[in-house]
Design a protein around this nucleic acid. Sequence first.
DNA 1: CCGCGGGCCTGAGAGC
DNA 2: TGCTCTCAGGCCCGCG
Length: 295
Amino acid sequence: MRCGVPELPEVETVRRGLAPVMEGARIVKVEVRRGDLRWPLAKDFAKRIAGATVDGLGRRAKYLIADLSSGDVLMMHLGMSGSFHIIQDAKNARPGDFHHARGKIGAHDHIVFHMSNGATVTFNDPRRFGSMKLVPRSKLDKEPLLNALGPEPLGNEFDAAMLAKACAGKKTSLKAALLDQRVVAGLGNIYVCEALYRAHLSPKRQASTIADRKGAPNQRAVALVDSIKVVLHDAIKAGGSSLRDHRQADGTLGYFQHSFRVYDREGEPCPNCKGTIKRIVQSGRSTFYCPSCQK
DNA sequence: CCGCGGGCCTGAGAGC
DNA sequence: TGCTCTCAGGCCCGCG
């Protein structure tokens, strides 16, 4: 089983791991080793952050959002391969702790935050699809990266009526609609596959078929919303236990093992029926599903 | 406006 | 063993 690219549950797990060392602490210094992430960092990125206290660390969809005392908000996205390493007490780190223990830096350690409590938080991202962006808090409500996002799937406002309305009239597949962050924010390829499986809905079904002519939700929409919430809750719970079990071991946040029911299980038996899990490609990406119990 | 495909990057794994 | 090839879970952008 492969490790997970960060979707909503992984980002939430990372947030929970970072919060204890970042919230309430001051960022003494920022090292930018490579600023050419998804977009180039602002030239004054490090200077603008240095000296600020992290008043809170939140999450919106797959973005981590650090509220800084300087008046800026730091948006961080893990992309496909991003992760964070924490060294609790960098100055007294033991030789085996991590690259930084001896002042060494890992191959793709691009940004290092030195905290006033002695901790070091390092952003590592081999593919550099991740990103960081500083935005004045007063302008956050105009931030284009956030403005287009749909509802948080675990929020109370996300329900069958809302999902059906967003899918009504959509010609595209249900799979593609759920991957669209404007419809619902935070799902990726894995959890879309898993949620559709649990809802017994085919990924090939036209998105509009979870709503009636007027855009009102049907039973499929109800089942789908329920499955999305359950799948995400389960994964966050698994992330929590991975934090407790493994964080001390190597300090990495952003990857933890999962067992999926259909994802990456082409050819294996369906856990639910006598069918065989199939892989198809939809708009260039893999979809895993059971053709006999997902209709 | 909508839907689709290309491109950004590197590393892991398969196949020769 | 070592090389080459394909593929990867995200996201933005431009095209028709």
